[in-house]
């Protein structure tokens, strides 16, 4: 056992950290070794001076800092998982149902207003009338007025309106 180990053992004896047989052994050695006895006396004196003079210090984190951080991380993840799995709160219910319904209601209101503001031309599209076209690329639109008193065939065609000279002469 080297000098440093011997000093540490004496220090442990002063601090009361040695077990019963070991403490008894080292007390016996103190009786026989003057150097050790002097060291023990010096350390005991220093301990006496320091007792009550040490400033109390508390660790910012507990001794099991590493494990406590892991535990906190696990708890935080569990809380987040519970939050996600939790049924919709009042605010969520509002977002999921009330806002879409309000949107649909606004759309229907808009369409209703559009219908009421549309000018009433009294046009209907259903009819038992027959239409035959001879030119394929001629655009045609046909409709009846609401009271069925006028049927219209609208052709995308510019008709020459000039009067025949013979007719003009006859008229």
């Amino acid at each position: 056992m080297n000098e440093n180990e011997i000093q540490l053992k004496v220090q442990a004896l002063v601090d009361g950290e040695l077990t019963g047989p070991e403490a008894k052994e080292w007390r016996g050695r103190l009786e026989t070794d003057a150097g050790l006895k002097e060291l023990h006396a010096r350390l005991t004196a220093v301990r006496g001076l320091m007792t009550g003079a040490e400033l109390p210090r508390t660790l910012p984190e507990s001794g099991d800092f590493h494990w406590s951080q892991i535990s906190k991380a696990i708890e935080r993840e569990e809380r987040q998982a519970k939050h996600l799995a939790r049924p919709a709160s009042g605010a969520n219910w509002l977002l999921r149902w009330v806002l879409p319904l309000a949107g649909v209601a606004c759309l229907m209101l808009f369409l209703t207003l559009q219908q009421t503001t549309r000018p009433d031309l009294g046009i209907s599209l259903g009819s038992d009338h027959e239409l035959e076209l001879s030119i394929d690329d001629l655009d045609v639109m046909t409709f009846n007025t609401g009271d069925d008193a006028m049927s219209v065939v609208w052709l995308d065609y510019s008709l020459d309106l000039q009067q025949d000279e013979m007719d003009l002469w006859l008229d």
Binding site: L131, E132, S134, M150, V153, D156, Y157, S158, L159
Partner: peptide, 26 residues
């Protein structure tokens, strides 16, 4: 128009009702 048939329309025409063939000109 110009010798070609553009359209033929068939319907029951009652007194007081009108059949109109129309188109844009300009």
């Amino acid at each position: 128009s110009e010798g070609k048939m553009l359209v033929q329309k068939s319907q029951t025409l009652k007194s007081g009702s009108y059949m109109v063939l129309a188109g844009g000109s300009g």
